[in-house]
Amino acid sequence: MVKNKPTALAETERLLALVPFITANQGISVKELAAAFDVSPKQMVSDLTTLWMCGLPGYTALELMDLSFESGFVTIQNAETLQSPRTLNLEEQVALIMGLDLLSQSLPTDSALKQNIEILGQRLSKSSRITSKLRAISNIPASMRAEIETAIVRKHALDISYYSIYRDEISQRLVRPLELRVDENAEYLYAFCETAQDFRVFRLDRIQSCTSINKVSDEPPAMTDSAAAKQSFTVRFNSRLRLMRERFDAEEKSSNSDYSQDSFSSQWLIRSILASSGSAELVTPLDLREEICEKSQLMLDRYQSQ
């Protein structure tokens, strides 16, 4: 796990990795090989030319690796010494261990594959210098993501049941999925919603279930970045500053203790202020401020009358 390795070291590492890769994939094209190693075809030819000169001391035809790539397809013989891939480094081990943990949760409890994963995980941990468990937990089922990805590729429609957190409602929608995007640590599905006859964005972790509908959907109209009406607001934080800043995504201070921000939804704003239990005060807009006051009074009255 050496970041910004000097070129010669990165090249050496690649050369050592190339030998077993070509051995296992004899006849692969230079182009494919370059793509697999994430370098240009020109660099790959230069790598292969260097490798062509390597071998056991003596460096005669008998000791050199027998590498051929002039035809544009690569084969290698006489490379037994280097033909096994190298041991995994720390970053590779961690990536696999955590990836397996994530995968395991996506499998049904009775899946026989869980045992495979456990054994693999144990072997990887045993050879690792980290003895604690490395965990990866996601609230988005991997099977659901696969279903959405497949539907996007095949242009199938999706029947989704979606939880709107602002309205606190579950709705059933028929959508034509267009794209998965990651934004601010959350994953979103961009889709054309047949139910609403407009483009909608769905947070993956709020999709309760989804079923692919096996029909080719018509091309939806071109996606427009619809400028939903944003409303600016100002909040003042009284306590629990760290949580409040995260909740209201408030980076910039507008004055001593007031933060200004935009919101797409007054529902979200009202709920967020209530859920801050007095740690945050809505300064503007005034109509929402009044609504919060009335709502709180109403709830208070109900509590006190019971």
Binding site: P20, F21, A24, P85, R86, E91, A95
Partner: peptide, 16 residues
Amino acid sequence: LDSGAHTALLKLKSMG
């Protein structure tokens, strides 16, 4: 861990 995952994948593909 993208870069580690990528090189790990290459090693897996090298195992024959």
